[in-house]
Amino acid sequence: MSTTPEQLYNFGFIDEDSKREVRRQILKAIALPGHQVPFASRDLPIARGWGTGGLQITMAIIDADDTLKVIDQGDDESVNAVNLRRLLQRTTGVTTTVDTTAASIIQTRHRIPEEPMRRDQILVLQVPMVDPLRWVEPNLERATIMHGESDYGRMWVYMYESVVKAGDLRIATQYPVIVAGRYMMDTTPIPRWDVMRLHNAEALFLFGAGREKRIYAVPPYTTIEPLQFEDFRFKTEFVAGQICARCGAQDTFLTSHFVVDSDHADGGHWRSSCSDTSFCDKRVLVNATTQEAPQ
């Protein structure tokens, strides 16, 4: 029987100099909260747009002692989360977990975990679009100058128009915020529900955009102000009376899914449950032991 020799990669896949470059830019990003710092962004064995920015940050910071959690849509078992975790685990050998409280590094797409993160934890967010100004100024050269000069007037006009047309700030995810009173920042496609979790938090948030080749950061205890008007305040997706069909939580971000049910006329029905599956599982377990599980 022939054996295929497994190729040996550097610890964390990317080479040491590439890691160093990412590290240098992360330190600058922290010193300039909310400012987009360019980085070279190497090609990875994962497609651009599938988390290569977050991956490069994780690869540059990860140590053999770390405990890693990877989620997509809040779910550890989502196909992309599984795939990224597989690459990181193969090239670092670190311990992985689904428990938010047990992780030292959490890499995520589209969600911030429901459980508050501690000071010894780092959240790495995968970013598809980096610049909130892209909606009003697609040209990078001009947008960079606008950030440099805090020239955010056109963005406020955009926000105003959305209120007039839609009766609300018409931005669902990627909600723009002002960081530490200076830079306007894209919050990545996290729902509005998660935006204020970035405000004066205990944990460090690192944002990586591989295709757009930018890194930015929100340090702990840093102010985050969502763009809003006196008479049109920032609102989350929260709807009074919402409840998770699984764990009964009334204060989490829910997503809908179809449940197959042969008794039902349409072959099933729609239900809402927590998008943070690890948190939901924990609550289900607690409910089961305390016999308070909702039907």
Binding site: L8, F11, G12, E16, I61, I62, R90, T91, G93
Partner: peptide
């Protein structure tokens, strides 16, 4: 796992 263990210097750097 398919990686080379990091050298002393790499460990120090990280």
């Amino acid at each position: 796992t398919t990686f080379q263990p990091p050298s002393l210097f790499e460990t120090f750097c990280t």
